[in-house]
Design a protein around this nucleic acid. Structure first.
Lengths: 337, 337
DNA sequence: CACCCTTGACGAAGCGTTTCGATGATGCCT
DNA sequence: AGGCATCATCGAAACGCTTCGTCAAGGGTG
């Protein structure tokens, strides 16, 4: 049989409760006692039984994670978000239970009702996501990564896509740009549930108007011709575009760069380019691209912090938008020159 | 507070143990009694407390999954394997706990010692994997997906890569090919820990020798020139290659097809092509490629079946190689014509 | 009719923790 | 010296379930 707290207590010559308190630190323990307990634990290789701990302590130290595999999301990003969540959770001694996509609703109910998890992290939230109502009614600590249309009664963490887009505009305009463009995802993406493409687009346009820049927007439709058309539209009849922001998948961005080079453009001499809210590495592009990244680690770490606080009862539901950061790689004109 | 088995028992007017037996089916329950219990459960929305169940029943209904993110593995395949495992596990009412890469060893020890999982699924096993010894000594049910160098005392499931490569050879030779080639991963991959590339290569060469075909092998080194060199080597000085098998990543395979077309090849008229042990979709290539796929669902389903049997005590440790299947898409000459 | 067997249900003993309340020992103050 | 905190430790009661042993009721048998 496995080693139990009883064995540790016996070996250390103390009572069970003393061992428990030494482990949790919830009551002071004498110096010598603690040391002999620690020695016993090390010698016996004791690890608390998770089931018993969950039953008595009302804490399983497990978080559920639901991640739908949306086509709008860059494929490797799915994994990156899940792993970032797992890593962040480990910081607080938590493990994660992965719910499958098809189990989104019943799986959430199941894990919540059976109290197998202390909380739920909901990844890649849609504008109108069936999981939001569920989370509200489940009454289990939860935090969402992404921003649903209605956030009341929910804790949400997300990159401030609006601000990220604005940041790109500022960079262009500060660098002297008069005409700037945004290449977005395919049209279909904007009518589907994910709202971050919309937030980027609208944020870009709004900031451009405020800064007095002429703004052009095009969607990258699938296929070579669709992309070529988008580029033509963005560059304009006079090929007078000063700055181009891209918010679309990595392959498309790479192809755009190829096409621009093929047309004789030199970046940033003829055109400044910024990659917006990308989860992939833009430093391997040629040329490497300035980027305002969407960093899975950042969102996930914050989400886990918030849910732990909620589990501990020290946190209200609220919305938290993460400030974007700008990473220079030389694809824009240095500001002020 | 949450509803417990006690509440159900009271509502149904029976004892706690009767409810438990009705739920587990381990003892016969009268028809009327069962119905009133079911009604009570439905009405109250009862779900057994996972912690209590684990403590009393010595079963947590959780499996741990460890998946290292090797660069040799096609990126989306990581996720595919994990999800396939999760789905298979759900068939048996199991959930999965995802261990992070950096926790490979201590995480395994932790979950095993704390009895938070009933078993461990080890994904993407290396030839010489630190996790194999650990699994052996942990004494927890486990099954590995992949084949380590030393399999004694372990349950392993993997595609029979050797047979898969042989199947490609057979297809070529049966179609009349005399000279066949294999394009493998980059050289570096063969000296690293994953052994399936080696198994494919050796299986291919061995079968080709047995079937009396001339065999050529080349590795796809990174970069355009590396690939071009590999193709030149494979096609031979007289451009007399009859069949080409590819066992490398999706992008490389797509580029090879482009290059072949550029050189005026028509597939399968001038050259038969087969994709071997691929996890990606080869039907979207132009032309679509015959493939002997590596199917995550298959390996993972079998692995979960085996571990469940081991948990239930009805299965010995053993090695199980999955027979490959051939999928035609018209990139080889039809056999016998 | 007495007997035994089967069926269906019950009670209680764990499972290994956490945590509350209590207790003894120690030291400080008056 | 007596009284009183303070500190360290202990004992026991949960936590919610599974499972073993038991028993009452009903039905078949000799």
């Amino acid at each position: 049989m496995a080693v139990t707290i009883k064995d540790v207590a016996k070996a250390a010559g103390v009572s069970i409760s003393t061992v428990s308190y030494a482990l949790s630190g919830k009551r002071p323990i004498g110096e010598k006692t603690r040391r002999s307990i620690e020695a016993a634990i090390a010698e016996l290789g004791y690890a608390p039984n998770a089931g018993a701990r969950a039953l008595a302590g009302r804490r399983t130290y497990i978080l559920a994670v639901t991640e739908p595999l949306r086509p709008d999301t860059y494929e490797p990003a799915h994994m990156a978000f899940i792993l970032a969540t797992a890593r962040a959770a480990r910081q607080f001694d938590y493990d994660i239970l992965l719910l499958t996509q098809e189990e989104a609703v019943e799986g959430l109910e199941r894990v919540a009702n059976s109290r197998i998890v202390d909380g739920i992290i909901v990844l890649d939230v849609l504008n109108d996501d069936e999981r939001t109502d569920l989370v509200r009614k489940l009454g289990v600590p939860a935090t969402l990564i992404g921003m649903p249309g209605e956030t009341t009664g929910l804790t949400c963490v997300d990159l401030d896509f609006d601000a990220a887009a604005g940041m790109a505009v500022d960079r262009f305009v500060d660098g002297g740009a008069k005409k700037i463009g945004l290449l977005g995802h395919a049209e279909a993406v904007y009518s589907r549930g994910s709202n971050f493409p919309v937030r980027v687009r609208d944020g870009f346009i709004r900031r451009a108007e405020r800064r007095g820049a002429e703004v052009r927007f095009a969607t990258a439709e699938p296929g070579a011709s669709g992309l070529a058309a988008a580029i033509d539209k963005l560059l304009g009849e006079n090929r007078d575009l000063d700055g181009l922001a891209m918010h679309c998948d990595d392959q498309t961005q790479a192809r755009v760069l190829e096409l621009l080079l093929a047309r004789g453009y030199e970046i940033p001499r003829d055109l400044a380019v910024i990659s917006v809210a990308s989860t992939f590495d833009t430093s391997t592009f040629s040329p490497p691209l300035d980027v305002i990244p969407l960093i899975p680690e950042e969102s996930c770490t914050r989400a886990v912090e918030l849910i732990i606080e909620e589990i501990n009862g020290s946190r209200q539901k609220h919305l938290e938008l993460l400030a974007p950061t700008y990473i220079e790689r030389g694809s824009t004109r240095a500001v002020g020159i």
